[in-house]
Each structure stands twice: as C-alpha cells, then as structure tokens.
Amino acid sequence: MLDTFIDITLLAFLTITAIAIIKVRDLFVVIMLFSIFSLHSAGLFVVMDAADVAFTEAAVGAGISTVLMLATLALTKDHDEKRPAHKARLPLLVVLITGAALVYGTYDIPSFGDPDAPAQAHVKPYYIEQSMRETGVPNTVTAVLASYRGYDTLGEVTVIFTAGIGVMLLIGGRLTRKRDKEDDR
C-alpha cells in the first residue's frame, strides 16, 4: 500500500520535472532539474528493491552526468538554449505513435514478479538456490552482476576507461595549454 503511494508520488514528481526540463530555456536550470530527475528515479528503483540500479542511477545520473554536463556548459559560450523556429508537430506525432506501440507491447509481457514468467523459469531457480553458497552475496541481482557477470563488467569498465583517456587527450590537452598562456601573462 505504502509502496504504491510512494511510487505514484515519485512518478508524479518525475512527470512535473520532465515537463519543466522541456519548458525551461536556461541550460544551468535544466542541468539542475536533470539531477533532481535522477534522484527521483533512484528513489523509485529503491522502492522496487533494485539496489544496484538505484545505486548506479545516483552515482552516474545525479553525480557524474551533472558534473559532465556542467563541464560542457563551462566550455560553451551561450548559456541559453535558442527557442526553435518551427513547431515540432511531426516529431511529436512520431513519438506519440512509438509510445503508444510500446505501451501496447507491455500488455503481452508478464506482470511484475509473475512466477510463471519465462525469465523466472530457466536459470533463476539455480541462482536463487546456489548464488549464496557460490558467491556469498546476499542479494541475487548483485551476485549475478558482480560475480557471475564479472568478466562482462570488467570489459565494460575497460571500454569506459579507454573512452575517458580518449576524451582527456582530446579536451584536456587544450585546457592545459590555455592555462599555461594565462600563467605567462
């Protein structure tokens, strides 16, 4: 009961924040609202008992991406988004149709926590029975993400690390030179 109430309230906050993000033209305010959006979704994930997803959402969504977007804003001159000249009727139509198709698609997927769903039938009993003994992690999702899928996570981290080095070489070098010039004055 309380779960449902928190869900509905947080989803309402999410909707309000999303509409405000579309309406507001000051990019700094948009970044602040993005941060609030991430915090609301992280709260929702916690209510759904998805601890890892909530954790990632808070660290990446509210933490890192806010800083990254602010850093981008610092490199640009114009802090106000230009008002678009044309009305976005066709994109709105496409989005509405796609959204309706996706909602229609959700009627065929099993309901939340359905024990007869295909995803629960094949490997899940093995994880529920064996993951505690094999990995010693109490949360099954964490056991799958951090232990059974450990190599996959390692690969992802390597990719992100490489991308980070690339970005630092491209952008960081320019900033250092600018700083040297400022020191010379």
Binding site: M32, S35, A58, A59, A62, G63, T66, V67, L70
Partner: peptide
C-alpha cells in the same frame, strides 16, 4: 554523492 555533486556545482 550528493555532497560531491553540490560541491562541483
């Protein structure tokens, strides 16, 4: 995370 974010902002 909240503290680090606000300090960055």
């Amino acid at each position: 995370i909240n503290l680090v974010g606000v300090v960055a902002v």
